[in-house]
Write a protein that binds this DNA or RNA. Structure first.
Lengths: 98, 98
DNA sequence: TGAAAGTACTTTGTTTTTCAAAGTTAAAGT
DNA sequence: ACTTTAACTTTGAAAAACAAAGTACTTTCA
């Protein structure tokens, strides 16, 4: 058996980033504020995890206005979707001992 | 939807600890050396992750002799098995958006 | 109109975690 | 005697996580 750890994506070690990805897999997009409330995080902490994900090009940011309020929403990139899927596949294989 | 992150076990954030648990779910027991080779880790790194898992009472250590060499093997506790299962269940639910 | 509150950050600094490398102990091989 | 192996522990450095405070701009409320 080859080292099963290599196949896991280091970026998804974090529970928070896993949470963000899961939310975005199910929902097309989600706003900063919704994420903050859902995941119960401080602004800074959330922003930095989002930044990690954005650096990896796993998500894109869309800035718009709702009425006159700024609204920042996040959506998965194809790269992000694939990376997450690959990670979950690797995890499943690892657990099943394949 | 409630905060999905809470249900994830912080101890399983680490790829290495996930790897150890996966190996032990499939194999009844495994030795320090086998783990070290399988997961391609330094002694110290592996030992410290095993220690984290042991502190959480997720695994037990068994010391014995093979011939006249010391042999340390690790096995899951029931607590560890359940904690891992719970983590995987939580992860699955999170991803599926339940 | 002026104060408070909301959005979406960035910055700062502390705490926690990770990890490699070196040291340790004890026994075995040569 | 010297080296090797097993299974650590210790040390120290680097990276990551996090909270709190600061920022800039806007809006809402009194």
């Amino acid at each position: 058996m080859k080292n099963p750890i290599e196949a896991l994506n280091k970026i998804f070690d974090s529970r928070i980033r896993l949470g963000v990805m899961s939310v975005l897999i199910v929902n097309d997009s989600i706003s900063f504020n919704e994420l903050k409330q859902l995941l119960e995080l401080t602004d800074g902490n959330l922003a930095s995890h989002l930044n990690t994900l954005e650096q990896a090009q796993y998500l894109k940011v869309q800035k718009s206005f709702i009425g006159k309020k700024t609204n920042t929403t996040y959506i998965l990139t194809e790269l992000g979707r694939h990376a997450f899927k690959a990670h979950l596949d690797a995890l499943e294989k690892m657990i099943k001992g394949i």
